[in-house]
C-alpha cells in the first residue's frame, strides 16, 4: 500500500479555538478513505487542510506538516494554486457556476491557459463521461447548469473537478444534499474513480462509509480516535469511543 498523504502533528486553530489536536495519520493512495464523526468534530476542517482551502479564512492558523508526494504542501516553496489543481475538491452543496454546463467544466482548463477549442471539447466530453453524466447532458451542453437536478449538479461538479486532471479528489459530504437514488449513482461513480484517484471523503452516513470506503478515520472533538481498515472499524474497533459511535449509542 502506497501512502498519498502523511499528516504529521497537525494542529488547527480558528482564532482562539482549537479545531484539530495533534493529528497523525497516513492516507493510502488509490483507495477511498472515509472520515466519519459527529458534527463539529473537525472532519471538514481536516479535509480542507489537505488542499489548503482553509487558508481562505483569515482566522485560520495551523501547525505541523502535511506531506504529499514527499513535499510539505504548506512549505513556502509550494504554490497553493498548484496544490489545489492537483488535489481537487467537491463540496457538500452542489455549487455549479451560474454558467452553461460546458463552461462549468471548461473553466478549470481556461484558467490554465488552454485555448484550443478542440482540446477543450475533448476534455469536457471525457470528464463528463468519467463523472457518468455525459448521456444526460450531451444534448444540452449550452444550457445553464443551474437547471440540472441536485444529483446531476453534484456529478457535474465532480466532472468539473476531474477536468483539471487532479491526482486526489476530496469530497465533503458529497451526497448529504441529494436524494437516495442520486446518492447511489455517485457512490457507484466513486467506486469506479477509486481505481485511478486517491479519494478522501467526509460523510455523515456510516452506512455509506461502510459501503464504499477501504479505510475509515473516526474523529471526535478535534482528535483522530481511530484509523483503520473499514471492515475492522465497523466490526472490531479498538477504541471504546469508536464502538459507541458506530453502534449508534451517540452521535
Amino acid at each position: 500500500m502506497n501512502i498519498a498523504f502523511k499528516v504529521e502533528n497537525l494542529n488547527v486553530f480558528y482564532g482562539e479555538k482549537q479545531a484539530l489536536n495533534t493529528i497523525n495519520v497516513e492516507i493510502p493512495e488509490k483507495a477511498v478513505t472515509a472520515i466519519i464523526g459527529p458534527s463539529g468534530c473537525g472532519k471538514s476542517t481536516f479535509l480542507r487542510c489537505l488542499n489548503r482551502m482553509n487558508e481562505l479564512l483569515p482566522i485560520f492558523r495551523m501547525e505541523g506538516a502535511i506531506i504529499y508526494e514527499e513535499q510539505n504542501i504548506y512549505s513556502k516553496q509550494v504554490d497553493v494554486i498548484d496544490v489545489r489543481r492537483r488535489i481537487g475538491m467537491v463540496f457538500q452543496k452542489p455549487n455549479p457556476f451560474p454558467k452553461s454546463i460546458y463552461e462549468n467544466v471548461a473553466y478549470g482548463l481556461r484558467i490554465q491557459g488552454i485555448k484550443k477549442r478542440g482540446r477543450i471539447d475533448e476534455i469536457v466530453e471525457e470528464s463528463l463521461k468519467k463523472a457518468a453524466i455525459w448521456d444526460e447532458v450531451k444534448d444540452r451542453l449550452s444550457h445553464s447548469a443551474l437547471a440540472l437536478s441536485g444529483g446531476q449538479q453534484q456529478r457535474l461538479c465532480i466532472a468539473r473537478a476531474l477536468a483539471v486532471e487532479p491526482e486526489v479528489l476530496l469530497l465533503d459530504e458529497p451526497t448529504s444534499a441529494i436524494d437516495p437514488i442520486a446518492t447511489a449513482r455517485i457512490e457507484e461513480l466513486l467506486r469506479e474513480l477509486e481505481k485511478t484517484y486517491t479519494i478522501v471523503m467526509v460523510t455523515h452516513n456510516m452506512q455509506q462509509a461502510a459501503r464504499i470506503s477501504a479505510w475509515t478515520a473516526y474523529f471526535l472533538m478535534g482528535e483522530l480516535i481511530e484509523f483503520d481498515d473499514t471492515t475492522k472499524i465497523f466490526t472490531n474497533p479498538k477504541d471504546k469511543r469508536t464502538e459507541d459511535y458506530i453502534t449508534g449509542r451517540f452521535g
Binding site: N51, M53, L56, I81, D82, R84, R85, R86, G88, M89, F91, N95, P96, F97, Y107, G108, I111, Q112, C157, R160, A161, V164
Partner: peptide, 9 residues
C-alpha cells in the same frame, strides 16, 4: 470556493 478549488487565482 469552487473556483479556488480548481486552482484559480
Amino acid at each position: 470556493e469552487a473556483s479556488y478549488a480548481l486552482g484559480a487565482s
